[in-house]
């Protein structure tokens, strides 16, 4: 773990070397993020609610999914850019070192500019929470924390799955973007507003629903069953087979040479 933080520190230092560029990029990321929730705000000037969900409920949903994605881009960029490692043959170097492979992959890259999104996601979340006037009990607090953790976990598992796929094809899986960027786009809204087919796919195949829909229902008081509160745990279980598949890929890996 110490190793990982050391690597993070190095990446941060490297990025700060180009100070102007860092500041501009940071500012542009603030704008990018703003344009995301601007769309939601604009729609809610014309509509009171979307299938019973108010603006602040949607914003809460939105902030949780954006938090998880931004977190991965800052702290797990290496796994996102895994195809570069494979294509350039740099992955072989990692195999030679006596440390955990996945940890080393995480050390290999980082995107600190996305910290701006992380901060903004938290700000939007706090604004939404204040305006929702929900009495936060202990269970609800745990639910919120679980939602944030599972949001990190779901993107991480998809990235790991896509990385495992690189072992077979030796190239990036572009369709992956459908499930990460597309999933992020979709899960900004409570998944219940979508069609049944969509809802089932993103509940049982890729469990976005357990990140910020089912627990959200409990959180905002639409459902009182305690199972809803702890449903994000399913996403954490989902992580296990993804990592197992990755490790299997490492075992079968044959180098591309360079």
């Amino acid at each position: 773990m110490k190793l990982y933080f050391k690597a993070l520190g190095l990446h941060l230092k490297a990025e700060l070397e180009y100070r102007m560029s860092f500041i501009f990029s940071f500012f542009s990321q603030v704008l990018v993020f703003f344009s995301y929730y601007f769309v939601i705000l604009a729609m809610f000037t014309r509509f009171d609610n979307i299938k019973g969900f108010t603006m602040y409920e949607v914003l809460l949903c939105f902030s949780i999914i954006q938090f998880g994605f931004a977190f991965n881009e800052v702290f797990a960029r290496g796994i996102d850019k895994f195809d570069d490692l494979i294509i350039q043959g740099n992955f072989d170097r990692l195999l030679l070192r006596p440390k955990n492979i996945l940890l080393q992959v995480l050390c290999s890259n980082s995107d600190f500019i996305k910290v701006s999104r992380l901060i903004q996601a938290l700000i939007v979340m706090i604004i939404a929470l204040i305006n929702l006037h929900i009495k936060i009990t202990l269970i609800k607090f745990i639910t919120l924390v679980l939602m944030l953790i599972s949001s990190i976990a779901i993107f991480f598992s998809i990235f790991v799955l896509a990385a495992s796929y690189c072992f077979i094809t030796v190239q990036g899986l572009e369709v992956r973007n459908v499930f990460t960027d597309g999933g992020k786009q979709m899960a900004q809204y409570p998944i219940g507003v979508f069609n049944k087919g969509f809802l089932y796919f993103f509940t049982f195949i890729i469990p976005y629903g357990f990140v910020n829909y089912y627990p959200l229902l409990y959180f905002i008081g639409k459902k009182s069953n305690i199972l809803y509160a702890f449903s994000p745990l399913i996403v954490l279980i989902y992580l296990i087979p993804c990592i197992l598949i990755f490790n299997l890929g490492v075992k079968k890996y044959s180098s591309t040479g360079s």
Binding site: M43, R46, F47, D48, N49, I50, K51, G52, E174, V175, N177, V178, D181, G182, Q185, M186, Y189, V193, F194, N195, F198
Partner: peptide, 26 residues
């Protein structure tokens, strides 16, 4: 890959709009 992404995004946008319009607005 681009086509797949565009399809997906199109559907997501449209389903959101349909949900909004079903709810009704001013």
């Amino acid at each position: 890959a681009g086509i797949a992404t565009q399809f997906f995004f199109g559907f997501v946008y449209i389903m959101i709009y349909v949900a909004f319009y079903q709810t009704g607005g001013k």
